[in-house]
């Protein structure tokens, strides 16, 4: 039985695609057969982050329109055996996503034995985002520690609980997870960013992890490498914790405490 996980946020630029890439990679590294689908038709990015942009021949829209089959469109990741990418089309727009088409592709992927289907949602609350969340079983709601991002995530949470298939059919609600990205404890302490407490006070869904603000993310995406592969970095460790918690393990929160300047720095003001 495959599980469909949507990575969503409402606001753009908060780290949905970065998270989709690392989350899917992390699940695959744990041995689960995983596919990650880019729903951002017209503004595809996932293939760049996953470093497979030159291998895109057929895409998600081709499969929806039955111009290609899944075996032709699925791109096998070079670093993980169990990971596949379904790229978005750059030349079409989101109206090319039909609900029946999306459902058929998801069903076909489930029939191929995928354990996890990760849907990378576009920003906004239009058709692309609605399609990405519609069939989801679980949702990673990606939020930055700032007011506008929190409000957009709140809006998305409202839609998850009213506009998705589980909500419409009155089934068990989508399991929601809050993932805070670009968290900088020092800036929180200085009052420049919302704290974990502030964010949870508004959103009130379980926290699955906190990804610290870091240059590693940019370096990784420039190399076409999911950030979770950047061994030894805080970002990579934080994403690994997220995957462990998603799979039911308990992990203490890391990288959320402000770093005090060392005694020497304080003495010499450097």
């Amino acid at each position: 039985m495959s599980k469909i996980v949507v990575v969503t946020s409402g606001k753009g630029g908060v780290g949905k695609t970065t998270t989709s890439a690392s989350f899917a990679t992390g699940l695959a590294l744990k041995g689960f057969k995983t596919v990650v689908i880019d729903f951002d038709v017209g503004l595809r990015n996932l293939d760049l982050i996953m470093g497979c942009e030159r291998r895109v021949v057929y895409d998600f829209i081709n499969v929806i329109h039955q111009e290609a089959n899944l075996n032709q469109a699925l791109i096998k990741d070079k670093k993980c055996d169990n990971l596949y990418v379904l790229a978005a089309s750059q030349t079409r727009d989101k109206d090319a996503l039909s609900q029946e088409g999306v459902e058929r592709v998801l069903n076909d992927l489930a029939a191929m034995g995928f354990d996890y289907i990760v849907c990378d949602s576009p920003a906004g609350i239009e058709i692309g985002a609605l399609m990405a969340m519609h069939y989801a079983d679980e949702a990673l709601v990606v939020t930055n520690p700032e007011v506008s991002s929190v409000r957009d995530s709140d809006r998305i949470l409202g839609m998850l609980s009213s506009k998705t298939r589980r909500a419409i059919e009155g089934r068990e609600a989508i399991k929601e997870h809050l993932l805070i990205t670009r968290y900088n404890p020092n800036r929180v302490q200085e009052g420049q960013m919302l704290s974990l407490q502030d964010i949870q006070d508004i959103l009130r869904i379980p926290l699955i992890g906190v990804i610290p603000e870091s240059e590693t993310v940019l370096q990784a995406s420039n190399q076409g490498l999911p950030a979770v592969h950047m061994q030894g970095t805080e970002v990579s460790e934080a994403y690994k914790d997220v995957i462990e918690r998603f799979l039911g393990q308990e992990r203490p929160l890391r990288f959320v405490e402000a770093q005090k300047p060392s005694l020497l720095k304080r003495l010499f003001g450097r």
Partner: peptide, 8 residues
């Protein structure tokens, strides 16, 4: 009895 979120 459910939370009302932005937009609702």
């Amino acid at each position: 009895e459910r939370p009302l979120r932005s937009g609702q």
